[in-house]
Design a protein around this nucleic acid. Structure first.
Lengths: 217, 217
DNA sequence: CCTACCGATCGGTAGG
DNA sequence: CCTACCGATCGGTAGG
């Protein structure tokens, strides 16, 4: 698969100013973030293994060896992308699930908020980090995989009490554990087919999901 | 990621007999099928790009150049794996959906049969072909992708009349188009977490999915 | 289907 | 963060 030339801006010039003498560039985080964003986009489009560190460097306007100044290895870059994705997801989730009034709302409304923010994190513009996390597990080393699994378990744990309440009230008929797996699967798969240019919005998706999963809401 | 040594059976000896003089080995299809099975398993476990043609050759008991006697390229091997997966899926689907009495059954029962056979094709033992198809789209060339899309569209088209009937009867509340995408997503994601050694069976999954998606059945 | 091999590319590093 | 480079590996091929 050819690499789109547009990713490499040949006319780009790095800032000409000499680095401040007191500190080298390590502390500004600017270039590191550029590498992360480039890596997320490329890992998502081509997969981890098919993406070269040279692709990433070029997309961030660097030379081929420079990513290794910021990251110890290609693996470490992948892990950093996923970690950033999970931190975004956890923050967004907390912003809806841990606000004071939330636990008092109807369970169906709580689920709707979880579903909506999940779609947003998955499908929002520039959110390549979470899709990479979902679809590149294989490429992680065992230690990294365990570490990511912890973050994911934290994220998923907030769904359980909501689903249990819905099951108790009869609005959710399927077993709670399998429901969680099937529901999250339905949502996660949307990264394969969602097209922001087409008709359905994140709100449309949320409404459809709620109508599909719950008896009434 | 290290390649498990167990895949390469160092003590394996190819049959010593000289090839029949009238035809070379091209016609028996035996070695070709061994390559396909090995490729499916490795593509699934490590991904297309991280799998080398040498991995595949070794897993099939061949030397490194030999896969190219059977397949023009690594790409062609991937496509052949996916094609076999889709043919399996289409056959299985036809065996439940196109039998004489099927169209007369209740729509909920028709859906249940579709869901069950979908899970079977996805999760059955040795069925690495379909998961590779689902998760390696990126690695196909545009022409191959279009060709696969046709097969997938054929497969999915059988779901639409069933979902429409369920929508009309009120058993499925969400819009039919989005329902199809969300339902198939929920099923397809199961390849990420299903473990045949653990409790839930394909029948359990089918029951849970039906309870999750339909109002009553 | 094997042997022997090629050209290209890749992750990573030393030294500045 | 760049330059220059290395060792290893990879998809694929010629000739049998």
């Amino acid at each position: 698969m050819p690499v789109p030339k547009a990713l490499v801006d040949a006319t780009h010039k790095r800032p000409r100013g000499r680095p401040r003498k007191t500190l080298d560039a390590r502390d500004d985080g600017n270039r590191r973030q550029a590498l992360l964003a480039a890596a997320a986009q490329l890992f998502r489009r081509k997969g981890f293994s098919a993406t070269t560190t040279r692709d990433i460097a070029a997309a961030a306007g660097m030379q081929s060896g420079s990513p290794f100044y910021h990251f110890k290895s290609k693996d470490a870059l992948l892990y950093a992308v996923m970690e950033e994705g999970m931190h975004t997801a956890l923050e967004r989730q907390r912003s809806v699930a841990l606000v004071p009034g939330h636990a008092g709302k109807e369970p169906a409304l709580q689920l709707q908020e979880l579903v909506y923010s999940h779609f947003e994190v998955l499908l929002g513009p520039g959110n390549d980090f979470v899709p990479v996390m979902l679809y590149e597990w294989r490429s992680l080393q065992p230690r990294q995989r365990k570490s990511m699994a912890t973050l994911v378990a934290t994220y998923e744990s907030l769904w359980m009490p909501v689903l249990s309440a819905l099951h108790a009230s009869g609005q959710l008929r399927a077993p709670v554990g399998l429901s969680r797996l099937l529901i999250l699967g339905a949502l996660n798969w949307s990264v394969q087919w969602f097209d922001e240019k087409k008709s359905a919005s994140v709100q449309d998706l949320t409404d459809a999901a709620m109508a599909l999963f719950l008896r009434d809401c």
